[in-house]
Write a protein that binds this DNA or RNA. Sequence first.
DNA 1: TAAGTGTGAGACAGCGTGTCTCATAGAACG
DNA 2: CGTTCTATGAGACACGCTGTCTCACACTTA
Lengths: 188, 188
Amino acid sequence: MSYSTDPRAARSREAILVAARRLLASEGPGAVTHQRVSQEAGVGRATVYRHWPRSEQLLLDVMDGADLPLFKDPETPVRPWLHRQLRQMADDLMPPAVAGLSLTLMQSALWDPEIARRRDESNKVIRERIHAAIRSAVAARELESDADPADLTAMLVGPIVYRTAMQREAVSDGLIDRLLDGVGTWRR
Amino acid sequence: MSYSTDPRAARSREAILVAARRLLASEGPGAVTHQRVSQEAGVGRATVYRHWPRSEQLLLDVMDGADLPLFKDPETPVRPWLHRQLRQMADDLMPPAVAGLSLTLMQSALWDPEIARRRDESNKVIRERIHAAIRSAVAARELESDADPADLTAMLVGPIVYRTAMQREAVSDGLIDRLLDGVGTWRR
DNA sequence: TAAGTGTGAGACAGCGTGTCTCATAGAACG
DNA sequence: CGTTCTATGAGACACGCTGTCTCACACTTA
């Protein structure tokens, strides 16, 4: 994406993103409105609309700022690495602001094609990274598995999301171990 | 819960619930506002507030109307029965209105203690039903498993919710089989 | 210096919230 | 039957948020 190079526009953009991040962290996604953000950022309301006509897009860009390197660059042995990644994900999702943001975006995606597109992209990245990790484990004879990539993701990530966002309890290491056992037969 | 026996109150209640259900199905949770509902129901706006001061409570009661007998009364053999229940759950969750409602309530629960309480109750019911089913399978020597009840629920329900609400794809029978394989060792 | 443009301020119409008052129609009861 | 009781509809009020528009102004860029 290329934005205007005008330093005035860049300044506004930054101020708005900072304000949106602060509001999100302190009061949750519901507080990230054009009005609140413009006040917090010391910027005209119309300016926020100019940069982000829909507030979900603003939320998406706030999220992009904290872009996750999750499941990137698998290490061998794969199993402990995957365990660490899932642990990390569970911890990242625990704060209400983050859990709320995820739920908000998932919900917006149900009715907004643009958000749906970006959700699908995100899903694809995660799915491919997890698939790559599993493939490398299989190649190193660390694991025997023939599961579908999308199924793998659902089986590993689904329970973590469910536990943190819906059951609102901590993800134990034991649960992560069980999830990993579910993807196939591990050796060593 | 006991409501007023006054037939006027009962009439309003019913009209409001019917209108809310219709709005939910046709336009999603975002359309279920006091204002819209009161118009649709042909009822004063204040009347809606009297019955349900917060719109999430109205959504909860709309959901209760379609109360799910999900995972209730396990049959033997347990595995095919569990399979059917998970299939049913996946199909129930697929319509955007239902998926959206679930996400909305999960999100509200993050900031509203009352909604959180009812979410926890719901979770408890599901968890105990699934636990009962697993116990009966273990008792009948159909299954060997020592998983924690909350973990079981996360491992079975989590991926279904993830697939339908976040990946927005159909849950295949193959995935359900994999999930069931994950809870322990099945015999026969 | 002059043209171009992002901005802040604010108007406007609309929808939604949450609380309040008040006359009235209907229910409950002696 | 008449009388109390109460849920209701209508609407006022103050407020928050949306989305669009206009306009003078200051800053950027050529």
